[in-house]
Design a binder for these strands. Structure first.
Length: 332
DNA sequence: CGAGGTGA
DNA sequence: TCACCTCGG
């Protein structure tokens, strides 16, 4: 797995929740995060992604179709937030990820030639790439399904966090802890729908800060010490040590002074990425009934999906129509 | 990953 | 009903 997001697992203490608690709630999904998961995991045993006859990757279409429809069936209103332009500081991270992908590609091909199927898959999951084609296709599918998406100016997680802060969404859905740095009051992890065994984790920013007895600004300072997508962090400092240091010295500037360490990026610049990010505020969230013919034409006509399967997934949208008092509750 | 089938 | 497995495109 290519490293993504800040490593905060040890300090955030998530609470476990049920899908019922998300009923009638708007969940702002980090599109890049979720699509990447689909590209990585929806594969054949040897690691080959799902493809149509023309060789176009279709794993993400499968994921988006089934994930979205089952969330909707559970009464959850999903919206997808796409990344805009990345901060220049993210380039290092992106370069590193690309290196890992290229290396994994070679190892995968080797393993495949030598018939080591399990190894091939292991490496294949690390080769997933988010191309403009993948993004555009995903947007098109969402549009046909009547599910709103928002194009962020910068980081998708920042935009999603802003929307929760504003009350336009209830939580951010992402695997990355970065959204709490961006100020999301609530985030939910493991928003998967496999069988009945859910493992939903909710992280409440306010509770996290109270428990750790620090401010959000200090949490961001901890992240900078630990390392984010925008900086390397200090060698040997993990979440717990970082937290201890920030609490002890108040902020990252004091820590740097006391420990006589160097960061390659000014802390203030990194702080601003999380605390003063640009957001889009003139969006509107409007769900529409799915364009069934359109989805079928796109998935089945263009990408070789099975029509009965697509139709039965789209059927789940109807269940909501009946459950709600009025259509306008949902599609207003 | 998620759907759908299988068998106990 | 459920744990497990295979396949999707």
């Amino acid at each position: 797995m290519v490293k993504m997001g800040v490593k905060f697992r040890d300090i955030v203490s998530p609470e476990s929740i049920k899908f019922e608690q998300l009923e009638n709630k708007i969940v702002a999904l980090d599109a890049a995060n979720i699509i990447y998961q689909f590209l990585s995991s929806i594969r054949q045993v040897d690691g080959t992604p799902l493809m149509d006859q023309n060789g176009n990757i279709t794993s993400h279409f499968s994921g988006i179709l089934y994930r979205t429809s089952s969330l909707i069936e559970k009464g959850i209103k999903p919206i997808y937030i796409f990344d805009g332009t990345s901060d220049i500081l993210k380039k290092d991270t992106q370069d590193k990820r690309r290196e890992v992908k290229e290396e994994s590609q070679k190892k995968m091909e080797e393993a495949l030639e030598e018939g080591r199927i399990e190894d091939a898959r292991k490496y294949a999951v690390r080769t997933s790439r988010m191309s403009p084609k993948i993004i555009d296709g995903s947007k098109k599918l969402l549009e046909l399904m009547g599910v709103p998406y928002i194009q962020a100016d910068g980081e998708g997680e920042a935009q999603a966090s802003y929307m929760v802060e504003k009350g336009d969404a209830w939580c951010v859905g992402s695997q990355d802890y970065d959204c709490i740095l961006f100020g999301a009051p609530r985030m939910v992890r493991n928003l998967t729908v496999t069988g009945g065994k859910a493992n939903l984790e909710m992280i409440d920013l306010k509770k996290v800060l109270e428990k750790l007895e620090i401010s959000r600004e200090q949490l961001v300072d901890v992240a900078i010490l630990v390392g984010t997508d925008f900086n390397r962090g200090v060698k040997g400092i993990g979440a717990k040590t970082g937290l201890k240091l920030i609490k002890e010295h108040g902020n990252i500037l004091n820590v740097i002074k006391k420990l006589d360490i160097q960061l390659e990026v000014e802390p203030e610049i990194l702080r601003n990425i999380f605390l003063k990010h640009d957001v889009v505020s003139d969006y509107q969230l409007k769900w529409k009934s799915p364009n069934i013919e359109g989805v079928v034409a796109f998935l089945c006509g263009e990408h070789d999906f099975s029509e009965p399967r697509v139709l039965s997934a789209l059927d789940k949208f109807k269940k909501i129509d009946n459950k709600q008092k009025s259509l306008t509750d949902w599609f207003g």
